[in-house]
Structures are given as C-alpha cells and as structure tokens.
C-alpha cells in the first residue's frame, strides 16, 4: 500500500508526543461525536471491531491491507455472515455499498480531537470516505498536543502525496444551520486506540 511515509513515528517531535495527550484528544474527539475506544492489546481491538460489526448487522466490510493482517480480520470475521474485501479493485467496487470501512491512521491531535491519515493510497481514501461507518485504528501513544506539533511532524515527511485530518463524522449545517451528521462521508467515526504496537515499522 502506498504511503506518504512508512515511518511516521520517527517524525514526531520527541517532546510533543505521547499518551499524556490522549485524554484531551479523546475528550475533544468525543465532543465532535466520534466514538473513542482505548484498548491495551490487538486482541481487545478485535473484540471492539466484532462488537461494532455485530451491532450494525454489517453485511459488507472493506479494510486496508495495513489493518487486515495485524488484526487478523479474516479470521475474526470468518464466523460472521459477511463479506470482507481487502484487495484494491474489490475495494473500489464494493466500498460504496459496504456498511463498514476499517483502516489505520497515523496519529491524533489533542487540540482538535482530529486523527491524521496518510491518504496517499487510493484504497485508504475509498475506505475512510464511502461507507457509513468508519473505524480507524491508531496507537494510543501517537498523540501530539497541537496543530503546530502535527505540522512539525507532517513537514518532515510530506514531500508529495495526500494527507488528511479527520475530525468526527461528516456533517453539515447548510439547512437552517441545524447540525446534521453524515452527509457525503461517514455518519459514524469510531477511533480504536491500541496501547501495544501492532504495525511493523
């Protein structure tokens, strides 16, 4: 899978990253209607995913290769009556009609409750934009305090490509200024932050 950087971790400002910023990050993400789960292990993350998929009765799930193998998604979703798509062309064909998309994001920003996504790969973007439920997985130690610290990081890795901040679900206030969730993007954003490192650098 294409990435702006394969090693975001080395780009974090060493003084300004860590779990100490997680609480504020989670609070602000929840303020904008994101659901936040902090778990210790990959196994716990797996059960959160299973629960979400059960509760929305998902029939189709799309996921990036980056998240599929460390969380062993084919194995844990096998017993459930659903289709999981992880290949690029399948993702393009099925993302629009899938119920859930699962992908990794690089880090959180405490100041705004945003997650920063390395969006260079087309499959990443399809998965986090098209399905109504978007599950993003991150490491709970990868939280920076401010937008400035986020850009410290980004400016080290961003030569070319595509980088996004995602802050809560898609929303609009275009009719009578009434806040309405879920226009063109997901109506639910679920952030699963895992304490243990699941991705290889």
């Amino acid at each position: 899978m294409k990435k702006v950087s394969n090693n975001w971790k080395q780009a974090f400002p060493p003084e300004s990253v860590g779990t100490e910023f997680f609480e504020e990050f989670a609070m602000r993400a929840q303020n904008v209607a994101a659901k936040v789960f902090r778990v210790k292990t990959a196994a716990e993350a797996q059960s959160v995913i299973v629960e979400i998929i059960k509760s929305c009765d998902a029939k189709k799930v799309v996921a990036t290769p980056e998240v599929v193998s460390p969380l062993e998604l084919p194995t844990i979703l096998k017993s459930m009556n659903l289709n999981l798509y992880t290949e690029q062309s399948d993702i393009r064909t099925h993302a629009d009609t899938s119920d859930v998309g699962i992908a990794c994001v690089e880090f959180g920003i405490a100041e705004t409750g945003s997650v920063c996504e390395d969006s260079l790969a087309i499959e990443q973007r399809l998965i986090t934009t098209l399905p109504p439920i978007s599950i993003v997985v991150m490491n709970s130690a990868n939280v920076v305090p401010t937008i400035a610290a986020a850009f410290e990081t980004i400016s080290k890795v961003f030569d070319h490509g595509y980088i996004s901040f995602i802050t809560g679900p898609s929303r609009t206030s275009d009719i009578e200024r009434v806040l309405t969730i879920g226009v063109h993007g997901p109506s639910q954003l679920v952030i699963i932050a895992i304490d243990e490192e699941i991705r290889e650098v």
């Binding site: 064909t93 920003i109 705004t112 409750g113 945003s114 790969a121 595509y162 802050t167």
Partner: peptide
C-alpha cells in the same frame, strides 16, 4: 469549530483507479 470534519492536503498527482477492459 476547532477543526472541520475534513482537512485534506494534496501534493502532486495522487493515485486513482480507472476501469480498463472491465478491470480497475
């Protein structure tokens, strides 16, 4: 808002999928 739902920065030509002979 502290931040809008989406902020995207795109540098250069990003990958896209096109259908050729029925394949993406």
């Amino acid at each position: 808002q502290l931040m809008t739902s989406y902020m995207s920065m795109i540098s250069g030509a990003a990958p896209a999928l096109v259908k050729k002979d029925g394949q993406w």
